[in-house]
Nucleic acid binder design. Structure first.
Lengths: 218, 218
DNA sequence: ATATTTTTTTAGACCAGACTAAACTTTTAT
DNA sequence: ATAAAAGTTTAGTCTGGTCTAAAAAAATAT
């Protein structure tokens, strides 16, 4: 049984390591969990003793198989709760993060099982991020940033790279949501902005930054 | 903003004081939150400094207006979550307590507002306990133990006094639930057990202990 | 190759919440 | 009325998680 704090560190390490691929540095973790490097060093020792990460001084932390599985279960809970908040309680998708951040630490396997069932076993959360299943398996589509696609391609919005509230608010303002169909009408050479058609209805320009942050399947 | 622990003490004090009427003793609190008297003394000082209770050495703690309002908001959250678990996630009413015990500490007024709406503004939880409204008001019926009623009376089950899982399991086994209609057919002088008719269908004997723990309206 | 800067770790301290052991009040029993 | 028992508080310690300041290691610049 891990504490609230331990789970948050583990989740941060998992995310920063891009799913367990790279080692992550003390300062990166400190930044990510909003604390100081000294505190991170302490916590790293704790997690290391529990075999959730492996750790080499001045080198960084790598997540272990066990650690990864625990991190995925926290992520699963987070994304199921986000789905619940948006689909059932009618939160808008930019309001859910902080609440889900609390709910993800509730300890009850039965609760999560029943919540999953209640939601109809969703495979992606409202931001389009995949929801790991009970065994930690994640279904992954080949996602590319909209900015990497080309004129005349048709695409479906699957996810956002960085879900900051202001970006999400912008998306809902212009009518883009997970599942929206997009056709690329033109690519402006000057500033790499895109002219797109949303759901065969709305024609609009979006900036290069926005296009890089929208993940699609073609 | 109170900590998880502070909220649990406050809730215990509220409950033990029967809604703020009596002062409660250190040992009672210790028993109730499963800790030692010395720890209670410390926490009492903290809550007292925050004006949530008033406190006199060797005498006991009384809850203040502020404390009562906070305790009621925790109870409100607990009961709304229990309702959600039973009505929406199909928990049985003896499985919900421990999970609700965790969920009640989630901090988000918006969440509770939306949950309340989602549930259709219920006034009682699955055990029949009243759910305080946003302002801490509780709707209260005149509840009496079934054991205090008399032969030939008709009654509706409204609540249980002590909702231990084994009692709740027993109730669901014999077909008693909140809202069930009960007619008292006979009172056995020997052991004060009752012969009752549930929903005009099932005739059964229940013990004096059970009858004392079932709260009804006539 | 050495000096400087950056990053990380250690040492020592603090706060919340818990505990044990001992001291002190209050209540109960004789 | 006094002794014993019961209940409560204080004093001191522990653990988890945090911090600052200083030391140590690694990376970078000259």
């Amino acid at each position: 049984m891990l504490s609230f704090t331990e789970e948050n560190y583990l989740k941060a390490i998992y995310r920063l390591s891009e799913g367990g691929l790279k080692a992550v540095l003390t300062n990166e973790i400190a930044e990510s969990v909003s604390t100081k490097a000294a505190s991170v060093t302490d916590m790293i020792k704790k997690l290391s003793n529990k075999n959730l990460i492996s750790y080499e001084k001045y080198y960084g932390a790598r997540i272990t198989r066990q650690g990864k599985s625990h991190a995925l279960s926290v992520i699963r809970k987070h994304r199921l709760w986000e789905t619940f908040l948006v689909e059932k309680l009618k939160f808008s998708w930019d309001e859910v993060h902080d609440v889900a951040e609390q709910l993800e630490h509730i300890q009850s396997p039965l609760l999560i099982e029943k919540l999953d069932e209640f939601l109809g076993y969703p495979t992606a959360d409202p931001h389009g991020h995949p929801i790991p299943d009970k065994d930690g398996k994640v279904q992954s589509l080949k996602l590319i940033p909209l900015s990497d696609s080309v004129v005349n391609k048709k695409a479906v919005v699957r996810s956002v790279k960085d879900g900051t509230p202001s970006f999400l608010q912008y998306l809902s303002k212009i009518g883009i949501y997970i599942g929206a169909r997009i056709a690329i009408l033109d690519k402006i050479e000057f500033d790499s902005s895109l002219e797109i058609l949303i759901d065969n209805k709305t024609r609009i320009f979006i900036s290069r930054d926005a296009a890089q942050n929208l993940l699609i399947t073609e």
